[in-house]
Design a protein around this nucleic acid. Structure first.
Lengths: 208, 208
DNA sequence: CCATTTCTGTAGTGATAACTCCAAAAGTCT
DNA sequence: AGACTTTTGGAGTTATCACTACAGAAATGG
């Protein structure tokens, strides 16, 4: 009934959390096995027995990151409030004291080497999913009637994702929480123009 | 008068350009010596004789990148036109066919390992300089009278830098030129609100 | 108690990283 | 031509990478 054999001498979830923090700060390739095992408090064979290989460990770390640290679109009455909250919660999440600055999904593998293509693709897919969630919320706004029908939600989601991923770079460069919150507010300054039809030239986001 | 000894068998500038392209695509750590020498068409001893070490080669590559591929604030009658042009030229530069997507300065070393701190700091400094140039142009606009006095040029420069660095990430993720140009336009939608005093709550960028 | 199962630490695997030794090659200077 | 200077290619050096073989430790089942 109970598990047979010698029981594991460490808490798998705690070790995974430590590994995630190392990946978050140093990226996939920048996190060496020796640094990972040191942070996790275990030796290499225990790591491989519990997580198979470095890539599998990283994928689990990404999942844990999304669960524990991920910036999500929170429920809000209107799309505008939801998006403003998303940007502001990003500004806060990317500048948590005692945590690495910026978003792990954005920063952990910006460049690809032949043997890390799988990692890059996986993170790219997660970013794509995050962007899709933003777009989803915008389409909800259209359905609810607080956004104009015919709005190019894809283009607006591109813009908002651009600001969020840029905030990760700025956070790594030392821009603090107040600075990023100001960026979030600045990014919202064009909201009315972006979502109504009264744009600069014609209707920039009405069709692409 | 002429150089003594056996003449170099390759064009240093051409080899540097090749190295820059490799660093641009794969980042500092992702570019291995063997890949660099293969792309440059030379053997390791020639590389070290001409460029000292990998880090020095990278620094020269960064300088060349800024000279040949850098996105600059072009002269324009008003700050608004200068900034709009900057964002649009970024969108175009980051999506050049047959060139790596995104900005090398932003993407080549987003994560740091103990032995690449110097690289990270160097790139961070280049980004800081780029942001300072944007801010400089904004202050010129204040001096010229086309931007309100008391405008928080630092905060606005933070916002614009955020958009530009975010565009590099989006370009790597496959957003094309049209998509990034739409992002550039979207980022400008709030310009009037950001630069005049008629902001959402009070005057978001008037003081931080 | 003994067999079985699983985990842990030591120590090492082959591969690749950045970098260099050295003799031959290819020029200039006198 | 011969001394001198610098570059070049092949081979090798040391360090670190991700990963693992193996034997002993620590649990359960009979």
């Amino acid at each position: 009934m109970a598990e047979r054999g010698r029981p594991r001498g460490f808490d798998r979830q705690v070790a995974l959390r430590r590994a995630m923090e190392v990946f978050w700060e140093h990226g996939y390739e920048g996190a060496s096995l020796s640094e990972l095992t040191a942070a996790m408090g275990i030796n290499a064979p225990s790591l491989y027995a519990a997580f198979s290989c470095k890539e599998a460990l990283f994928r689990e770390a990404v999942t844990l990151y999304e669960q524990q640290e991920g910036v999500l679109v929170a429920p809000a009455p209107t799309a505008r409030e939801a998006v403003a909250g998303l940007l502001r919660s990003g500004a806060i999440a990317y500048t948590e004291p005692d945590k690495p600055a910026g978003c792990m999904i954005v920063l952990a593998a910006t460049t690809y080497t032949p043997k890390t293509e799988g990692i890059r693709d996986h993170l790219r897919e997660r970013r794509r999913a995050a962007k899709a969630a933003v777009r989803q919320r915008l389409e909800q706004g259209v359905a609810d009637g607080d956004l104009a029908p015919g709005l190019d939600t894809g283009a607006l989601a591109d813009y908002l994702s651009t600001v969020l991923s840029g905030m990760s770079v700025q956070a790594r460069d030392g821009v603090g929480r107040d600075g990023l919150l100001a960026v979030a507010d600045a990014a919202m300054a064009g909201w009315d123009r972006l979502t109504s039809g009264e744009a600069g030239r014609s209707e920039p986001l009405a069709s692409r």
